[in-house]
């Protein structure tokens, strides 16, 4: 039996008349990208367990086009950093970020990834934004799966509305240079 009860996304703004539909390429590409994000789960601790719940049947992140987890950074679009990043781990986060191909986005899930959280200690990196640029922060210790879904939808918004030439813009280059990423 064919399931006919699926939904499709709204078309972007454009000009249409019988037989054709015209819009800018940015919007079409953004639409495609935002609904097929391949996340790279960089799960280190407690938030990683909530991520298991997020991918499980109850919350089901796959509804948002993120069915395919990309464990290889090369094919990933979104780096989801979940859990405490110790200073020992910091270089590895940076390395994973560098290995990801453009366009790339970063979501920091949980207080630890966003700011160090309750672990203001000698061994914990005080927020991953010290080493990689972050697009969306999801607070909570750990955040509920609903919160992460909202954060993910924020990422989708960013992805959908971004210029496909973002990577060549001087602002973006300057941002990466700040982090020492060439």
């Amino acid at each position: 039996m064919v399931n006919t009860e699926y939904t499709i996304v709204e078309p972007p703004d454009g000009y249409s008349a019988p037989g054709f539909f015209a819009t800018s390429i940015d919007k079409v590409v953004g639409l495609a990208r935002q609904n097929s994000i391949w996340p790279l789960p960089f799960a280190t601790s407690c938030c990683g367990v909530e991520f298991m719940a997020l991918m499980g049947a109850t919350y089901d992140l796959a509804r948002f086009g993120a069915e395919r987890l990309s464990f290889s950074p090369r094919q990933a679009d979104l780096l989801m950093v979940m859990g405490t990043i110790a200073k020992k781990m910091a270089t590895i986060v940076l390395q994973v970020y560098i290995q990801m191909a453009e366009p790339r986005w970063v979501l920091a899930m949980g207080a630890c990834a966003s700011s160090g959280g309750i672990f203001d200690t000698y061994s914990v990196l005080q927020g991953i934004d010290r080493i990689v640029p972050v697009d969306v922060y999801v607070p909570g210790c750990p955040p509920r799966p609903e919160q992460v879904i909202q954060g993910f939808m924020k990422i989708q918004e960013l992805v959908g509305n971004e210029s496909i030439r973002r990577r060549y813009s001087p602002e973006y280059k300057k941002l990466l240079a700040q982090y020492g990423i060439v």
Binding site: T44, T84, A86, K88, M89, I92, F119, T121, Y122, S123
Partner: peptide
């Protein structure tokens, strides 16, 4: 090992007893 070493034992030396439960 040690990639998420968070120094629980050191934190515990600086927190009152009831604040150690969340650790």
């Amino acid at each position: 090992i040690g990639y998420i070493h968070r120094a629980f034992e050191k934190i515990a030396e600086r927190r009152p007893y009831y604040q150690i439960t969340p650790l």
